[in-house]
């Protein structure tokens, strides 16, 4: 059975100068964090900037890092705060989304399935984009980071019930979007 070191242990090893530990930690979380920021920012360039900023802060904070909470909570807390800063810096955050949901289609499927999947992707992406920032944030923390409601409440600085309510609304809207019958031309 493969030994999988804890995130906190890896962070502590990096604090002590072990760069390989940081690489493991980074590869473990990078894609989920990138998707979280991509769907939050809705713009690839902005997501990349915030992504760099987040990891930069993680690197800088290594000396003060204390494993009091899950590393994932710490990471997404930093990411959430960076996103808020990004929103404040760019108040006119209403630019058109430049995420292409069909950017990586499955190659092995038949044309009908591909069309169906593409349609579902577009619907979900549109619905996700139309969610208020708070609801989208909570949904992404729940789905992408795999955090619990308590952890989400800590990160978004709200009560657990508020986080739960936001998540419920977000899921209801997304489900409705998925159930929507395809448009007939």
């Amino acid at each position: 059975m493969e030994h999988r070191p804890e995130d906190s242990a890896l962070m502590l090893r990096y604090r002590d100068g072990d760069v390989a530990a940081f690489e493991i930690l980074y590869r473990r979380h990078k894609d989920a964090l990138f998707r979280y920021l991509l769907r939050l920012c809705r713009q690839r360039a902005a997501a990349e900037d915030v992504f760099q900023e987040v990891w930069g802060k993680i690197i800088k904070s290594r000396d003060n890092y204390r494993p009091t909470a899950k590393f994932t909570t710490f990471l997404y807390h930093v990411a959430h705060n960076c996103f808020i800063d990004h929103l404040r810096r760019n108040k006119r955050h209403g630019g058109a989304a430049d995420i292409d949901p069909d950017s990586q289609p499955d190659g092995g499927d038949c044309p009908e399935t591909l069309v169906e999947k593409s349609l579902a992707r577009r619907k979900l992406d549109t619905a996700l984009g139309s969610l208020p920032d708070e609801q989208r944030d909570v949904f992404l923390l729940y789905e992408e980071a795999g955090l619990s409601l308590d952890e989400i409440a800590t990160i978004t600085d709200c009560k657990r019930e508020t986080a739960k309510s936001r998540l419920r609304y977000a899921i209801r809207k997304l489900r409705a979007a998925l159930d929507e019958p395809p448009e007939t031309t």
């Binding site: 990078k30 998707r35 995420i99 950017s103 999947k117 579902a120 992707r121 979900l124 996700l128 998925l178």
Partner: peptide, 11 residues
């Protein structure tokens, strides 16, 4: 559905 859609990777 979200998993299906969200398959982007870090550049």
């Amino acid at each position: 559905a979200y998993r299906e859609m969200a398959d982007e990777r870090t550049p």
